[in-house]
Amino acid sequence: MADEVRQLGGVTVLLCDPAGPPIATEADALDLIGAAFLGATVVAVPAERLDRSFFALGTRFAGEVMQKFVNYRLRLVVVGDISAHLAASGALRALVAESNRHDQVWFVPDLSTLDARLAATP
């Protein structure tokens, strides 16, 4: 599957292909933002596409990527199992919990959860 734009929960979402290129730099994140300008307001990125440095908060990479999405007024959703990363980092657990309380960046286990959450969001 290539990246595709699809409706989930009544919202236009750019679904990123799990087999796509890794997101390891700010430029990679900006490429996704550019692709979203085809009409998507949400970018759903499979967790396995994110470089390990995204989950190591000391690198600041997650903050840089998240801030880019905020600046462009796009919602970033990390989709997939990140339990190993969460087990290794209390700071990451706190970031995920706080992010999921708000509307800009979410961490969800699968697309059906994303669909339900988007449908429930005003």
Rank of each mutant, 00 (worst) to 15 (best):
D81S: 04
T25S: 12
A35C: 07
L57W: 02
V65F: 13
A88V: 02
R6Y: 00
E64D: 08
V45N: 03
A35V: 05
L111S: 02
F55P: 08
A27D: 14
G63Q: 05
A94W: 08
T59D: 12
G39E: 10
A88T: 03
R75T: 15
Y72R: 05
S83L: 09
R93H: 13
A91F: 05
E48F: 01
A35K: 02
L14M: 04
V5L: 14
D110Q: 06
T25M: 07
F55A: 06
A94F: 10
R73P: 02
P109S: 01
L32F: 09
A36V: 04
P22W: 08
A40S: 15
S112C: 05
T25R: 09
A97W: 06
L8V: 04
S53L: 15
G80F: 00
M1A: 06
L86Y: 15
D110M: 05
P18N: 03
L38V: 06
A116E: 12
D110I: 03
P109Y: 10
R60L: 14
V78F: 00
W106K: 03
V45W: 04
G20Q: 12
D17A: 11
M1W: 06
Q104N: 09
G9I: 08
R93K: 15
L92N: 04
A119P: 00
P22R: 11
Q7I: 09
A62N: 07
I33R: 04
R117Q: 08
L118F: 09
A84R: 12
A19K: 13
P21Y: 13
T121S: 12
L38M: 09
R6N: 07
A91I: 08
V65T: 05
L32Y: 05
A24V: 05
E4A: 15
K68W: 01
T25Q: 07
A120E: 13
S53M: 14
N71A: 15
Q67D: 05
R6P: 01
A91R: 12
V78G: 03
N71F: 07
T121Q: 14
E98C: 08
L92P: 00
P21L: 11
I33D: 03
C16F: 14
R93S: 14
R60C: 11
A94Q: 10
V42N: 04
L50Q: 02
T12Y: 02
G20K: 09
T25C: 07
F61C: 04
V105F: 03
Q104K: 09
F107G: 00
T41R: 15
R101C: 12
A116I: 07
M66D: 09
A97M: 14
F37R: 08
A24L: 04
A119Y: 05
K68E: 06
F37P: 03
E48C: 11
R117K: 13
A87P: 00
L76N: 01
D103R: 15
V5E: 15
V13Q: 02
A56E: 13
F69Y: 09
V5Q: 15
V42L: 06
L38Y: 07
I33M: 09
W106T: 02
L50Y: 04
F61K: 08
G34S: 13
F55Y: 15
A56Y: 15
L57H: 00
V108K: 00
A44R: 01
S99N: 14
I82F: 10
V70K: 13
P109W: 10
S53Q: 12
I23C: 06
T12P: 00
P22F: 11
R52P: 06
F107C: 02
A119E: 13
A24S: 12
G58L: 06
L50A: 04
R6S: 13
A19T: 09
